[in-house]
Design a protein around this nucleic acid. Structure first.
Lengths: 254, 254
DNA sequence: ACCTGAACACCGTTCAAGT
DNA sequence: ACCTGAACACCGTTCAAGT
């Protein structure tokens, strides 16, 4: 894992603890780029939580303090990692520009959820810790947002309408991801589940059992249901504004 | 702060660092209840991040390890604190039962947001760290959810419809809170804001500046806008099902 | 300039020991 | 039974020093 230089393996490292004579890799063989890559790799292999400065230094075969010559703090390192994550995310996000505005939005946010759900590191860096977004990452994000707003403007939305529309859907999507991700930390799911099971039998007069998922995170169905309603509400609100939107009423679900 | 026993202050504690002879409070003067209260107080005064076992022990004037006799881990202590938070939250949440189902939902989730926004500890314990919810806290939460589902059932919703409706709105509300809270950690907001300001001037062809809020958290207007659209979408979906809902179409916003 | 080990002030948790 | 200090394995970061 990671680039290997030639003088890096001159000692047979079959036992990881032996060979006390060898210290670190050669001088001048480390760079900010390599540190960032190593950090991203480590966090990707394990998790962002597992990424610590000592562990990173160990995996790069350098002293812990060497990292601090290239990055002033862990936060600065995370900012660089976030930049990678952002460009990767928007590199995977492609929406058919010929779709009507509502289907365009549906595709945009459905893809957003899919991409961020299948890569935990991406989700952690972009959704869970959006602090210190670099100018470069900001620019990439804004270009994508710009395409959405342009689409909505072309459909007849005003500036405020387009902005509020994007914002509310973005909050819904990222919020659902944040909740799901926040719940996925330790905690045996059996306990709560069984507790809910017990309680449902007792005094409740409605199907609270069905709501169980909400206590942690939404399932696909629930997410789509909310997205449907948002879009339906938007359609009803802007009816007459959008020109091409002669959509089929089609009862999704139920 | 906290209950004070008589033999607790027999030494004048004007200087906090002096008096090395005195060690801790009297034996048998600590309890699980008092530890939980102290922990909640400390986290409430400072923040949940600032709550550590050593700091808590110091504020309670006991040895660090004493806490571990009453709570097996910090997580177990947090579970107790979460129970307090949950009962406080639902104690503040009151919705007029005579409202129509849609206004009932609006009031329910608007209040949810208000209560959790004005008490950061509540938000941290309930929204940000929903792990290890105790059976008691689960029961309290389910009773409230039950009232919502019952309301929807009475309006003609099926079990699945009621459940999905609650779930999607709950995800939207809690998600918005999670994003807002996750963004409020260190990070100078000037930097990103100015970067956005700069970039907007450059190559964008749409009002991306308006979307700036989404890069961290939704404002009140955006939240209400999304809530409006969800409810409008639900009304359109369930038209004909709900009996009393002869609502004014009233164009909210714009 | 680049990189180092040692040290600092934290953290959650355990353990053997005291009363 | 209740409570203790010392210790362990971590963490992010700093500092004086080496090359």
């Amino acid at each position: 894992m990671g680039a290997i230089r030639e003088d890096d393996v001159k000692v047979s490292a079959s036992q990881p603890d032996g060979n006390a004579q060898r210290k670190h890799r050669a001088r001048g063989s480390i760079s900010a780029e390599e540190i960032a890559s190593g950090a991203y790799q480590l966090a990707s292999d394990e998790s962002l939580e597992a990424l610590s400065m000592p562990r990173l230094a160990h995996s790069l075969d350098v002293g812990v303090t060497s990292i601090y010559w290239y990055f002033r703090s862990k936060d600065e390192l995370l900012e660089t990692m976030r930049e990678r994550a952002v460009s990767k995310f928007y590199g995977d996000l492609h929406v058919d520009p010929d779709l009507d505005w509502d289907e365009y939005l549906r595709s945009y946010f459905r893809q957003t959820r899919r991409i961020l759900r299948q890569d935990r590191l991406l989700c952690d860096l972009i959704v869970m810790r959006p602090q210190n977004v670099s100018p470069v990452a900001t620019r990439i994000a804004l270009q994508s947002i710009d395409s959405v707003l342009t689409k909505l403007r072309a459909a007849g939305f005003s500036d405020e309408q387009a902005s509020s529309t994007y914002n509310s859907l973005s909050v819904y999507t990222r919020g659902a991801l944040a909740l799901e991700r926040g719940w996925q930390s330790s905690s045996p799911p059996d306990e709560t589940a069984s507790a809910v099971g017990l309680l449902t039998v007792e005094g409740m007069q409605s199907p609270v059992a069905l709501v169980r998922s909400t206590l942690h995170a939404p399932c696909d169905e629930d997410f789509e249901f909310g997205l449907d309603n948002m879009l339906r509400g938007l359609r009803a609100l802007y009816d007459g504004i959008a020109s091409k939107s002669t959509r089929v009423p089609g009862s999704s679900r139920a």
